[in-house]
Computed example of a mutant assay.
Amino acid sequence: MGIELIALLVILGVIVGLLAGLLGIGGGLLVVPALLWLLPKAGIATDIVMHLALATSLASIIATSASSALNHLKLGNVDLFVVKWLLPGVLLGGFLGSGVAEWIPSHYLPKVFGVIVLLLAIQMVISIQARSNHPMPKAWVTTLSGTVIGIISTLAGIGGGSLTVPFLNRHGIEMRKA
């Protein structure tokens, strides 16, 4: 790995961090496409680039999410009751999603990523326009929702906040806690 590639990766990290912090978007939405462009320049075979980009994005999310979650926990912004029911599903969904990603042929993964990003954009536009306040669903529905969120997030290489926040907000959890 040359110094130029290392510099590009550091710059990518800074840009993703700034945009994620300013706009509240997941870094994976930026990291995956950038890695799809950068990794072949590092000599990574094209048939594994998408899998490597998704996995690398998800691995970097572990550190950033843990740091952010701890800070929000200290500030009292975490609804632990909701976490108790959502987290098992998200973990299961992440595990299942990685299996699905292995099963999907490499040349289809960028298309899957693109469809998920497009649907996320549509969801964001709809959620801006429609404000509803439904009660939180039953525990098993919340866990099942977490599983779906985990699968989709894993297939897109994102942390899941772009799906979890609207889900929680729709069900009456204030934005700061969502």
Rank of each mutant, 00 (worst) to 15 (best):
T64M: 08
V32Q: 01
A101I: 13
H134F: 09
G161N: 10
L109Q: 15
K84V: 10
L58T: 02
L22A: 03
T154R: 03
I44R: 01
A7K: 10
L70I: 10
M175K: 13
A55D: 01
D79T: 11
K84A: 00
L30C: 02
S162R: 07
V16W: 05
K111W: 15
V31I: 10
I3M: 10
F95H: 05
G159A: 08
I116T: 13
G26L: 00
W103M: 13
L144R: 13
K177S: 05
N133E: 06
G2F: 14
I61Y: 03
I3Q: 11
S145L: 05
R176T: 14
L8G: 02
L118P: 08
S65E: 11
D79Y: 06
V141Y: 11
L22V: 07
G43P: 09
L118M: 13
L52V: 10
V100T: 10
V78K: 02
P105K: 13
R176P: 00
F113H: 05
L118Q: 05
A121V: 14
G93L: 12
G99K: 11
V78W: 05
A55E: 05
L29T: 06
L96A: 15
N77W: 03
V117L: 14
I44Q: 09
S162F: 03
I173G: 07
G146M: 02
L30P: 01
E174S: 06
Q123T: 06
G24L: 02
D79R: 10
G89C: 10
I152F: 08
E174P: 11
L96S: 14
V90K: 07
G13C: 01
V148Q: 07
G43V: 15
S65K: 11
P40Y: 00
I62K: 02
F95M: 15
G93S: 12
A178S: 07
A7P: 06
L30Q: 03
W103D: 06
S57E: 12
L58V: 04
F167S: 00
V82T: 05
L23M: 10
G89N: 11
L39A: 07
H72W: 05
A59M: 14
